[in-house]
């Protein structure tokens, strides 16, 4: 168990806005007297209070639910997206995971498709663009058949859920040396590929989403696997394999991998 009060040396990426150059700035003695029970973001809250009190600009970071489900927070901690604990978003990380006296590096997600807004905050609207290209089942609001008229085995439903649990935080992109969004996109493709509701748009969905992913400037997947290791929801690499199979299958079936040419 860590001691009751810990001191840390922070090195934080400071960048005023999208256009400015950024740099790592040293904070040797603001993160002092930190209780091990503080969450990582609460430690940052405290550091920011101290910076504001002395008239300095606080470190910009974003967060919302602070329980690992909204996907807002995202900080590269010591080179690892969301920090050292597996299956844990930065907001659920606690200072007891560190040792007294540690130097901690804080950086934003780094990817061309995620421009920095300020300091540790990045713009992930490229993810919305991918979702827009097919991350749904096309149904209108209105009367629908009874929920139990579609029977779905528990195993299939659980499998779909395991993909659907993605929180869209972007850690997979930040962890990938190629800044690929394959785990994110693969998870959504897989959810609907296994469910009966997803079948009518199965080919169109994967072709469009994969193309959009490329258009947004995300890199290619080269099977490194860092994405799953960084994922706070432990989304499995199988989702990428499935997306690839779905893609090949769709291109063959529809005559072209290009959604504009394929008969989707």
């Amino acid at each position: 168990m860590a001691s009751d009060s810990m001191d840390f040396h922070l090195k934080v990426w400071r960048q005023d806005d999208r256009e400015s150059d950024g740099e790592l700035v040293d904070y040797p003695n603001v993160a002092h007297d930190i209780s091990p029970h503080l969450s990582f973001l609460e430690m940052l809250d405290l550091v920011n209070e101290r910076l504001i009190e002395r008239g300095d600009r606080p470190i910009a970071f974003d967060s919302d639910c602070r329980e690992g489900i909204c996907g807002t927070c995202g900080i590269v901690v010591n080179g690892q997206p969301h920090g050292p604990k597996r299956k844990t978003a930065a907001c659920q990380l606690h200072m007891r995971a560190f040792d007294d006296g540690d130097t901690i590096y804080l950086e934003p997600w780094r990817a061309d498709a995620f421009p920095v807004v300020r300091d540790l905050v990045v713009d992930r609207s490229s993810f919305d663009e991918i979702m827009q290209a097919g991350g749904y089942v096309s149904v209108q609001t209105g009367p629908k058949p009874d929920g139990n008229s579609i029977k779905i085995g528990k195993d299939v439903s659980d499998q779909a859920f395991d993909s659907a649990t993605c929180i869209g935080c972007g850690a997979c992109v930040a962890a990938c040396p190629n800044a690929s969004a394959s785990l994110f996109t693969g998870a959504k493709v897989s959810q609907y590929a296994v469910l009966p509701q997803g079948q009518p748009e199965r080919e169109r969905r994967v072709l469009r989403m994969v193309h959009e992913m490329e258009d947004q400037g995300f890199g290619n997947c080269s099977n490194i696997g860092e994405c799953q290791a960084a994922c706070p929801k432990d989304i499995d690499l199988d989702n990428i394999a499935r997306m690839r199979r779905e893609y090949v299958r769709a291109a063959a079936k529809k005559g072209s991998p290009n959604p504009d040419e394929a008969e989707v």
Binding site: Y136, P143, G147, N148, I152, G153, L195
Partner: peptide
Amino acid sequence: IDQAVAQGVPFAREYGGEL
């Protein structure tokens, strides 16, 4: 519930496939 099921929301299911 019907609307959400049609959208592919993965609700918990029994082994027989019902909600």
